[in-house]
Amino acid sequence: MANPQKEQGYTAVANEILEEVAIRKFSSTQHKILLVIWRYTYGFHRKSHAFSISFVQSKTGLSKDASKRGIKSLIDKNVITVVKEASFNGSRELMFNKDYETWKIVSDAPENVEEMEQNTSNNSLGADSSTGGGIAPPTGSAPAPPTGGGSAPQLKKEKESKERVVVDARKETPFSFFEQNFHILNGHIQDKIGNWCDDLTEEVVMEAMKITSENGVRKFSYTESILREWFNHSLTDIEKVRAHELHKKEAKPNARHGNNPQRDMGKGRTGQEQFVPEFVGRYKRA
């Protein structure tokens, strides 16, 4: 059973911000990205942080395209701002804009109390007219509408979609693999992993990490040396990467046991250096 405690860490977000976000028309994608941005900025007592697309994708379960569109829409709506553009050495640095009066997100809240009362009054009038002046309709006069707000195929499709999102959220990512097999993920390594995922793919980065772990190494610099080799050979597909590594493994025994006349010169059948007496050389010269 999960038992989270505030003592284990928490993210301090002002109540005023939470209330404002609740009444704005944010999409579910935008909500997810906002939570991640709060978690890795306010959650670490900082105002901004570098966020790669792959990192946001791994923390939200969204697709790569959805993550890109979500971040872009929040920037366009002035909900998050770009502190520093992405470079070869780092991801784009983002900051949450707490001045909600500058957001370009429509609010669902009524403008004043009179509007709320008018809406309530209209709803009650509509209810009275539908029942014929308050008289309840006879029971059993019509079949009850289907519950659940949709047909069975539609409900099945929605259920499958929700299950797919849960599976995607639990899917192993380069970030989670690093924390489980290397050490605690810090911001510097997070940026590097994110950049490599953007340049190659998550699968390729994971493969390099697995090779690093299998060789008993726990340094990301070792992983980067593998990734650079693949990048220089334009190996951006996981199948090409695996074929490349298999070819290297098959080539190693040949290189180790192959014939080298220059190397084997002066060696006997056992491969050991043979002692040649000095007088043999004098005899040959004579």
Rank of each mutant, 00 (worst) to 15 (best):
T120V: 02
M116K: 03
W103T: 11
N123V: 00
S107Y: 05
T120N: 04
E111P: 00
M116D: 09
E114T: 12
N119C: 01
L94F: 11
K104E: 15
E93T: 13
K98W: 03
K98Y: 04
N123I: 03
W103P: 04
T102W: 00
N123W: 10
V106I: 12
W103V: 05
S124V: 12
E93P: 13
V113T: 13
S124L: 07
S124Q: 08
L94I: 06
S121R: 06
E93L: 11
N97A: 10
N112G: 10
S107N: 15
K104S: 15
Q118L: 07
V113G: 08
M116P: 03
K98H: 10
D99L: 09
E93Q: 14
N119T: 03
Y100F: 12
D108N: 13
V106G: 12
V106Q: 14
D108I: 04
K98V: 03
Y100W: 13
S124W: 03
N122P: 07
W103A: 00
V113S: 09
W103K: 07
S124M: 09
V106Y: 11
S121P: 00
Y100S: 02
K104L: 15
L94A: 08
T120F: 04
N122A: 11
M116G: 04
L94Y: 11
T102G: 00
F96R: 07
V106D: 15
D108C: 13
E117T: 00
E115H: 01
I105N: 09
I105A: 09
T102S: 09
E101Y: 05
N112C: 12
M116E: 09
Y100T: 07
K104C: 15
D99Y: 03
I105G: 00
N119Q: 05
N123H: 11
E114H: 10
L94P: 13
D99C: 06
V106F: 14
T120H: 05
P110D: 09
T102I: 01
V113N: 05
E114A: 05
S107E: 13
M95D: 14
F96Q: 01
I105P: 02
E101K: 00
E111R: 00
E115W: 04
I105S: 06
A109H: 05
N112F: 07
Q118R: 10
E114I: 09
M95F: 14
V113R: 11
S121N: 06
E111G: 00
K98D: 10
M95E: 15
N112S: 08
I105V: 15
Q118P: 01
E93Y: 14
V113F: 14
A109N: 08
Y100I: 06
S121A: 10
E114V: 07
I105C: 09
M95K: 15
E114G: 02
F96I: 12
W103I: 05
N122S: 11
N97F: 02
V106E: 14
P110C: 04
W103F: 12
I105Q: 13
E101N: 00
D99W: 03
T120I: 01
N97K: 06
A109T: 08
E114N: 00
E111M: 02
N112H: 09
E111N: 05
N97W: 02
M95H: 14
S121H: 00
